[in-house]
Nucleic acid binder design. Sequence first.
DNA 1: GAGTTTGAAACT
DNA 2: CAGTTTCAAACTC
Length: 682
Amino acid sequence: MDTPHKTQITPTPTSSLSKFEDSPVFKYIDSLSPIEQAKSSQTDNAFNSLAFLSPSSLFPSPQINCHRESRFSVKRHHFSADLSTRVLQSSNESNASQEASKAAGQSGLYDEHPGCLSNDGSSKGISSDLFDKQSDLAVELPGTSKYDCRSPDDNLEACDALLKKTSLEVVEQERSPFQRSRDEWKERQRSFENERDLRKIRRIKPSEEAAGCGWVAVVSDVADMLTVNTSIIHENSDGQDQRTVDSGTTSFISNIPEFSLDNANNLENAESGDHQGSCKQNELGDSVTDQTSCILSTCLPDKPVVTDSSLKKDDKGEKCSQLSRQRSIRRRCLVFEKSPGFGLHLNSLPNILKGQNPPNKSILSSMKMGEVPSDNGTVVIESSCEAPASVGGTDADHNTPEKKRQKFELVEESASCKRCNCKRSKCLKLYCDCFAAGLYCIEPCSCLDCFNKPIHEKMVLETRKQIESRNPQAFAPKVIRSTDSVLDTWGENNKTPASARHKRGCNCRKSSCLKKYCECFQAGVGCSPSCRCEGCKNSFGRKDGCDESGSDGEGLEACEKNASVKNSHDIVTHKNAEEHRDLPVPSNISRSSSQLCNTPEHCSSESSLGQSKFNSNLQAIPEDETPKVLKHKCLPLILKTNSPPNSKRVSPPHHECSSSTAQRSRKLILKSIPSFPSFCPP
DNA sequence: GAGTTTGAAACT
DNA sequence: CAGTTTCAAACTC
């Protein structure tokens, strides 16, 4: 490579240079960079835009920029720092090879600079386009970086764009609201067109794009919605597995734009392929961030969905696509949550009664997976649990270490989602967890001859009715909180860790109630007198009671264990579950936590806490709230059930969400309706 | 992934 | 209600 000449790097007039050199920005950057000439020259363009802006314009008073600062300041600052770094980086490169650097701007030569803003190929044009997207600056930048992350040269342009935008932001503030609004719209349109064009030009490999789509969305969304988590930016610059950053926060954030992006996404899909389309959604999300703001409040409740962190670098295209699906699902959830009226799964009744929003389960009624329902005010939502399935892919996909880890992450961050595997019951018997949970089977299910689908709704309902006629409690929650009147009769047993009991009790003979064969154990509750188990060793509470068991070492141990578990049993159990790849109780609990998040308020609060973290959820769950969560199945059946409203919710499947794969979706909490005075704090 | 074990659900 | 069969999840290898 030829050694570049500094003079060659300086395309702009010296006058401009001297002007901006006097500017505070220049001084600041200058102080950060050991390289003067190259830096100056390279940043020249960037600063040209500043040349006609007074320092005061560039750094408006807090009052003036108050609003925007609240949203973008952090990012901007980050970017500034980053910008400086990149400028330096670019400068170095320029010193080493200005020619090459220049060329890089055209060819996207520097792929090794993830996180760098760049626009190869059409970068020039793009840059100027970016110039037009002032309002989306904060969001656009990360988004842009995602798409190209290559040339340092482009960085300069990006920087240029940044500075211009910064300037324009100030200018924009001076415009009338009407003008701003109109301009923003035009800008968005341009932004969209530009990005689309850019995509065409760059021909970014789907995998690359897919790789970025997840975190880009996260970053951009976060940037827009929050005042940004520094870690996110940091991760961004690293270009390493950004999606793992603050998954809790990012997850819900990433959901936000989805709702409004649908159309745009479709548009994009039609033009670019699935991957691009999926990813584009994110881009579009960026370009319509204002809309996302509006949606944010609605989305918050949905936060607990599978997070982007689960996405892996590999299978990026697929992940991206999956992410897209997840988003679609979440979008529906948003709708669902927004809707005052909806069809609901029986299990959701308690929540409804309490004035809570329905759980994030899909509601059954006439909808197939992917269908957005609704008529009769019934909003069918695909629960996020479906997402997990999608993310996880097929069962086969779950086997690779990465997949497993991914799955595990998902498990931690979201409720589980299990699929049934019925072969002979047609999924119309209680053997079927989906059916038992009042949910329709969905695509991920491996069932055969399944009739538990929206298209067979009639049959499903009839069968259900039949079963209920035989046993009115058939779909009632199997686990009841200790506070329930029914449990009051249990006396001390109610004090067991789970503070809940299996309604009918188990009948274990060989598992000693220490395996998930035992419904009590699976539900994370201790056995009760109503259990007919033999050799009960339920770690959550023996049938005979803790005190009694204390007589023998084993019993004592169990009691101690229970005691210790009381405060953290969720977590402990979860760990055990993880070890076994099944999350017995904890999983349910965790799910319940997710499910508890039925109200926007609740979810919001959780979201704010980064509730994505499994442990956090667990800890947040009141002990006595240990509910039996409905396992899986993401497509909740609608419950047009004839079940006595008060008496039941759809009983959760026994194994409710116990399987590892099942862990990912949100489950409805199984509790008897009467016992839910308050599921979650108002 | 296939086979076994287990206990709930369903049936008689 | 009890015994048996069926079923699918949980578990093991």
